[in-house]
Simulated scan of single mutants.
Amino acid sequence: MKWLQLTLELVIGFILLFAVVKIAGKKLISQMSPFTFIAAIVLGELLGNALYDDHIHLWYIIYSITLWGAMLLLVEYASQKWLSFRLWSEGKPTLLIRNGAIDYEALKKSRLTLNQLQSLLRKHETFSIREVAFCFLEADGEISVLKQADHQKTTREDFHLPPHPVYVPVTLVRDGQLLRDELMELGKNEQWLTAELRKQGVPSWQDVLIAEWLEGKGLFVQTYRPSEGKMPKQQGLKEES
């Protein structure tokens, strides 16, 4: 009887957690603010503690997770509705470095040491304070860095090169499965894909680990067993004509 009750509680708890996470949105998963970080921990603790306590009935689990999920949604709604509430619940970014100079008072208020600041900067490929023009500590604990002009990466504009359009790659086959919706959005059909694969010596999309289309570059294909020492094949646009 206990095994049956535990199984039932696990299944219902899993469904409720899944529903709350889906409804609450990606912010709960990414833990974009201190509130969502705590909310995610409490949500897991509510279910975990309830499952292994014999004195807590199934209905208490359903009620507690449902109520917690409803409060999460209420806070999210209030954050979207009122800017003042959003600033209070999520906080504002803190400027730690201004015009290349560290704001020591802001650093102390954020409970950060210089060692921690340098560690965070290194994660952004910044190994010296002198490279930084501005640095913000975001609400989720990450930092945003704007480097000095001399240390910024070059762009096409720096070389006076004409701009070119940017396209999003579209995955057409993944794990041997044809993604028909993506193929239709691209304006292609299965016959076209089969013909393109055969140009690269692949008889069927079922043999493909991943196939990706990029406008201007053509079709990139990798099978489950690529030839040893060879790069995955890529069909250029010139070869298609």
Score class of each variant (00 low, 15 high):
Trp3Asp: 07
Leu4Met: 05
Thr7Lys: 01
Gly13Ser: 14
Phe14His: 10
Leu16Glu: 06
Ala19Gln: 10
Lys22Gly: 00
Gln31Asn: 10
Thr36Trp: 12
Gly44Pro: 04
Asn49Ser: 13
Asp53Ile: 01
Asp54Gln: 08
Asp54Phe: 01
His55Ala: 12
His55Leu: 08
Ile56Gln: 11
His57Tyr: 04
Leu58Trp: 06
Tyr63Trp: 09
Ser64Asp: 07
Thr66Gln: 00
Leu72Trp: 11
Val75Asn: 14
Gln80His: 13
Trp82Leu: 02
Leu83Ala: 13
Leu83Cys: 08
Leu83Glu: 15
Trp88Asp: 06
Leu96Ser: 04
Ile97Asp: 07
Asn99Gln: 15
Ala101Val: 15
Asp103Val: 02
Asp103Ile: 00
Glu105Val: 12
Glu105Cys: 14
Arg111Ser: 15
Thr113Gly: 15
Gln116Thr: 12
Ser119Val: 06
His124Cys: 00
Glu125Phe: 08
Val132Ile: 05
Phe134Arg: 02
Phe134Met: 05
Leu137Glu: 07
Gly141Arg: 00
Val145Phe: 09
Gln148Arg: 15
His151Trp: 11
Thr154Gly: 12
Pro169Ala: 05
Thr171Cys: 11
Leu172Ser: 03
Gly176Asn: 07
Gln177Tyr: 09
Arg180Tyr: 02
Leu186Ile: 03
Gly187Val: 00
Gln191His: 14
Trp192Cys: 00
Leu193Asn: 01
Ala195Tyr: 12
Pro203Met: 13
Pro203Leu: 13
Gln206Cys: 04
Leu209Arg: 11
Leu209Met: 11
Ile210Thr: 09
Glu215Met: 12
Gly216Phe: 04
Gly216Leu: 11
Lys217Cys: 03
Lys217Gln: 15
Gln222Trp: 10
Arg225Cys: 04
Pro226Trp: 12
Glu228Arg: 13
Gly229Tyr: 01
Lys230Ser: 11
Gln234Met: 15
Gln235Lys: 09
Leu237Ser: 06
Glu239Ala: 09
